[in-house]
Design a binder for these strands. Sequence first.
DNA 1: GTCCGGG
DNA 2: CCCGGACAACGCTTT
DNA 3: AAAGCG
Length: 294
Amino acid sequence: MNKLLISKNQVKLSNLTKVLWPKKGYTKGDLINYYIEMYPMIQDYLIDRPLSLKLFPDGIKGKSFYRKDCPDYAPDWLSVIPIKSHSSGRLIKWITVNQLSDLVWIANQTAIELHAWLSTGEKLEYPDFAVFDLDPVRGMEDTVQVALIIKKILDELELKAYLKTSGASGLHIFIPVFPIYTYVQIRDLLKSIAEMVIEVKPELATIVWQKDKRKDKVYIDYRQNATNKTIPAPYSLRPTPAATVSTPLNWNELKQDLDPADFNLNNIKNRLDLYGDLWHDLLATRQHLPGFLL
DNA sequence: GTCCGGG
DNA sequence: CCCGGACAACGCTTT
DNA sequence: AAAGCG
Ligand SMILES: [Mn+2]
Ligand SMILES: [Mn+2]
């Protein structure tokens, strides 16, 4: 049993050689190392945000499960955000990451996927970014096209937007905002923008709720902008054979042949060396939403 | 990964 | 003792 | 009530 002391907090690390990504041979130790190295880049999207973790104790092929409520056996220093559910009244001690030791502890729990709220504990009702979650059915080409149309509309609205791969099959667009708008306001605005896209390309994109009525169109998921919902954090690993990473992209990287598998645990460091952290300034780029659309 | 309850 | 089950069978929006 | 989502 290895132990790690991180600013007074002792984290016990176990089974570091256990293989979690069989095809690539990446181990639990690689997982923990990855998040330690990525902490400077990922911290903005974890600190003081309620998190939902997807754990894979037996690797990406084994049984997995989600965890958001902090278990009793967690160390007493683990950071949590207690939130009472609006509908049921149940109190959930949401796990969060306010310090490196928190991240190392959840990594040792085999948290491959880190899903975070759009708002922080400080202002739970007011997100500091809005999110377009583009869910493809057919493939990446259509999704890229939809993303470019959204980008054009956002440019016209003079809203700066940030792009990343989801790490699975889709794309995420984050629009940083001043934390003064409610989830309802943000959701309504993004719905309007989605409707503009569909007006231009009705054969390409959809926002219909019923899955079987979406055909093979790209689902522009704006409904993700809601309390209690989460989105994979930038730089979150994914349980894919290639150990993909949800990776920030430059808008000029949006090409028809974009392949999410090209952005993974193996080459993300190299990419950071080349391009730096493309999302470094995201949270500092607070924006007001266009009043005429609210 | 860890706890718990039942064999 | 070991094994199987639970941990987001949650909470939220929309129809 | 139930679908759909992370
Ligand atoms: Mn998605
Ligand atoms: Mn979605």
